[in-house]
Design a protein around this nucleic acid. Structure first.
Length: 795
DNA sequence: TTTCTCCACTTTTTT
DNA sequence: AGTGGAGAAA
């Protein structure tokens, strides 16, 4: 490992070493930035508003540290995406040279911890070739677990289980503790699943994303020597986007930093948008308490956006109660007014966006790469893609169905994983019938059962297929053939180059041939995609001649959506608001500003979630440098059904004079129709969400409940309010269409107007004819038609 | 045992 | 609307 030769800078040092480069570096920053970059000893909290030059400060800070004699390999720089880390390294390379920059430990929590864990895997009972499971992998493992435990996936959605398990893990709650504190039926079941899931991960020699954090903590706690070792290694710690770290990340970093205490965190509470995935905003709010001698620096000058855009952003975020007070300002010009696009439907929205891009391209010096279209959900990209394609405009979608999530690509990688880590039962099951090996469900069940009875990995059951009772002769042969295939490649894994190995593996396994023989267009596509993986791997091997296959596989599984974006391409960029974090574009479109979509429907019930949605909007607005477009549609297909959403309440939070043509757009419409739910005059509300208390309340304000059946013709005359607005106390209005009905599952607690609170004991039917059976303490069991029952979910 | 067909769920956001 | 899984038929 790296040796520790460096001139340490002591905290009390009065005169900085006369490094002219160091001075030059700092001269390029403003006063506050300079302070943030030059205080390198002790705890430092940088509160960096959007566009305040945060990345610049971080790069200069690290470069300065290196100039001061700190060894690059003693610096741990944790960023939110690998792309951000890569860019940072690149910029540092310009300042201090390529070789030094490359030796900094810069990357995401997940990828850097994975690197450490590979090295120390044995300490925790893994082998160094452990597999890393992504969300899909853990979902199928959870499904398998639920099947063996006999827990119905009908009643408990595997997604919800995954959410609960992951949530617990992010809070560093183990299955024992979880099971002990489980309250309702759902949590009790999750407790059981959680335990078994962990056992299986171990058996598979695999870690899920959360494990990468948890196991890092466990590693540091495993012995004082181990802790000491990494405290020595990572003496200077920097964390970007600190507002979006979770408890596990917090704990890991606390352990690392507690000795040297050289920890610098950068964040902005107004941009915290990952609460739903366990991010704990208290990490940033409590930093000063955790490190009592913290120095706090505030970067409040925005260099990115026009006054107009920044003011709109401030307008919006000021509606949040829960925030640190900040005064973000800019010296930039006023800039253009914000353009509000009001559209008939999602198709027209897309067309208007494209038309504006075209016009803007003609009338300004901007080109395609200057435009970004942001939306709340990935599904919204479809319409915009179509419109761009019609106009032959190149575009790039960040995220969505990523290349690496495609079936054939995952299969190819699964083959490689099994060779590296035969205990990886998930990957094994994935490929066992790809192509078909005549091992059907029955045979597999026998093998799985055998493995489970021996508490052995599935691969061992395959190897001992002859001893598995009930297994047919043919199945035994297939199983042994498969074992032979994998074993053959395992023997070659240290001889062949990874790309050569992969190439001959997809060949020998018959994976490629199956697609070739099928010959359909789709199969051809898949065949091509496998070739793409192979050439990608070959390129990788060329770039890193020493690289191991494990490294490649790890890099792929920890790749984030944003990481794939290449800079400099001539194309419009499309992505979710979440993916846009940390990026900036001269012109930004935010599409789908409608109630129920943005803010997302579920959020309106809870102030905390509403505030998170608002922060997301804030993030979106502040991505724009010169020009901002906001759009909403009056009709939108959601979930296969036509909906008539109202404009987002967020639009009203921006001062009218900042937007174009306020007289005939939202202001006007919201002013008349909107008094019902949106005007803050009629129902003052601190959150900007107004509250409707009952159906009577609605009617007294001119609301007509929609008829049971919608006819398309009615769309001519209907107002946005024909579509039932949400009631605070009852999440639905009588007789709703399928997509508006709440999703209910056994075990949930619901409230009925007459019967009170009860627990769901059964469900039947789907869509508008769905029924639930609810057990009420007073009145007993009742079967209710969901669309009339007016149930409110209590959890 | 495989394959086809139908049904259910998905869609919030992601390392 | 599309996909993936479960169940039934060949």
């Amino acid at each position: 490992m790296a040796k520790l030769t460096l001139n340490r800078v002591t905290p009390n040092e009065q005169t900085p070493p006369s490094s002219t480069t160091g001075e030059n570096l700092l001269a390029q920053l403003n006063d506050v930035q300079r302070e943030a970059a030059s205080v390198i000893q002790g705890p430092l909290l940088i509160l960096a508003g959007a566009g305040s030059g945060k990345t610049r400060v971080l790069t200069f800070r690290i470069a300065y540290m290196i100039e001061q004699g700190i060894a690059p390999w003693n610096i741990l720089a944790l960023t939110f995406t690998n792309k951000a880390a890569g860019e940072m390294k690149e910029r540092i390379a310009h300042l201090v040279g390529e070789d030094k920059a490359q030796r900094i430990w810069a990357g995401t929590f997940h990828s850097l911890f994975a690197r450490v864990l590979r090295r120390e895997a044995e300490v925790l009972g893994y082998t160094s070739s452990f597999s890393i499971y992504d969300g899909d992998d853990s979902l199928s493992l959870l499904r398998a677990t639920m099947n063996t435990l006999g827990i119905s996936q009908q009643n408990f959605s595997p997604q919800a289980v995954r959410g609960a398990v992951s949530g617990a893990k992010n809070k560093f709650i183990g299955w024992q503790e979880y099971a002990n504190t489980a309250g309702n039926v759902f949590e009790k079941q999750v407790g059981l699943i959680y335990k078994d899931y962990e056992k299986r991960l171990r058996l598979n020699n695999a870690m899920d994303f959360d494990d990468l954090l948890l196991n890092m903590i466990r590693l540091l706690q495993s012995s004082p020597q181990m802790l000491e070792k990494y405290q020595q290694q990572f003496r200077y710690i920097l964390i970007d986007e600190y507002q979006d770290t979770n408890k596990a990340q917090y704990l890991a970093v606390s352990l690392l930093a507690q000795k040297e205490r050289n920890i610098c965190v950068v964040g902005d509470d107004a941009q915290s948008i990952y609460r739903w995935r366990g991010a704990d905003i208290r990490n940033i709010l409590d930093f000063e308490r955790d490190y009592h001698d913290t120095k706090v620096v505030r970067l409040e000058q925005n260099y990115r956006s026009t006054k107009t855009i920044l003011e709109a952003a401030n307008n919006v975020i000021n509606n949040n109660q829960n925030q640190l007070k900040k005064a973000l300002w800019t010296d930039n010009a006023d800039g253009e007014t914000i353009q509000l696009l009001r559209c008939r439907d999602d198709r027209e929205e897309a067309e208007q966006i494209v038309r504006n891009i075209q016009t803007d391209r003609r009338t300004s010096a901007r080109d395609l790469q200057d435009f970004a279209v942001l939306y709340r959900t990935n599904a919204q990209s479809q319409a915009i893609e179509d419109a761009l394609r019609r106009e032959n405009i190149p575009y790039l979608i960040v995220g969505g169905v990523s290349f690496y999530k495609r079936k054939e690509v995952k299969d190819t990688l699964a083959y490689l994983r099994v060779v590296m880590n035969p205990n990886d039962g998930e990957s094994l099951l994935r490929i066992i019938n790809e192509p078909s090996r005549g091992l059907g469900k029955t045979s597999l069940d026998h093998l799985i059962h055998f493995a489970e009875s021996q508490s052995a990995p599935l691969f061992q059951a395959f190897a001992q297929a002859e001893g598995v009772i009930g297994l047919q002769r043919r199945a035994v042969t297939s199983a042994l053939d498969f074992v032979a295939l994998i074993t053959r490649f395992r023997e070659q894994k240290d001889v062949l180059r990874p790309d050569e190995l992969a190439k001959s593996l997809v060949d020998a396994s018959g994976l490629l041939r199956a697609y070739e023989e099928d010959g359909t267009d789709e199969s051809l596509d898949r065949w091509n995609n496998i070739q793409r993986v192979l050439s990608h791997l070959a390129e990788y091997c060329e770039r890193n001649p020493e690289a191991l296959l494990e490294q490649y596989l790890q890099e792929i599984s920890l790749l984030s959506d944003v990481d794939e974006v290449k800079a400099g391409g001539k194309h419009v960029t499309l992505m979710t608001l979440h993916s846009a974090k940390g990026l900036e574009y001269p012109v930004v479109f935010i599409a789908g500003l409608e109630r129920g979509l943005f803010p997302f429907a579920k959020a309106e019930q809870m102030q905390e979630e509403m505030e998170e949605e608002r922060r997301l909007f804030y993030v979106g607005i502040t991505r724009a440098r010169q020009k901002l477009y906001l759009s909403h549609a009056e009709k939108r297909y959601r979930f296969g059904e036509l909906t008539y959403p109202m404009p987002s309440p967020f639009l009203q939070e921006i001062k009218p004079e900042l937007m174009n043509n306020p007289s005939n757009t939202t202001q006007n419409r919201l002013g008349s129709a909107g008094s019902l739910t949106m005007s803050s005059k009629s129902t003052p509300s601190t959150t900007g969400i107004n509250v409707i208390r009952s159906m009577d309340d609605l009617k007294s304000r001119g609301f007509q409940p929609p008829a049971a059946k919608k006819t398309p013709e009615r769309s001519q005359t209907r107002t946005p309010f024909d579509d039932a607005p949400r009631d605070e106390s009852f999440s639905q209005v009588p007789s709703k269409s399928a997509s508006e009905l709440p999703r209910l599952r056994v075990g949930m607690r619901v409230k009925h107007e007459m019967f009170g609170v009860g627990q769901i004991v059964g469900t039947s039917g789907t869509g508008t004819s769905a029924q639930v059976e609810v057990s009420f303490p007073q009145v007993g069991k009742k079967k209710l038609m969901l669309k009339f029952a007016n149930l409110m979910v209590m959890d």
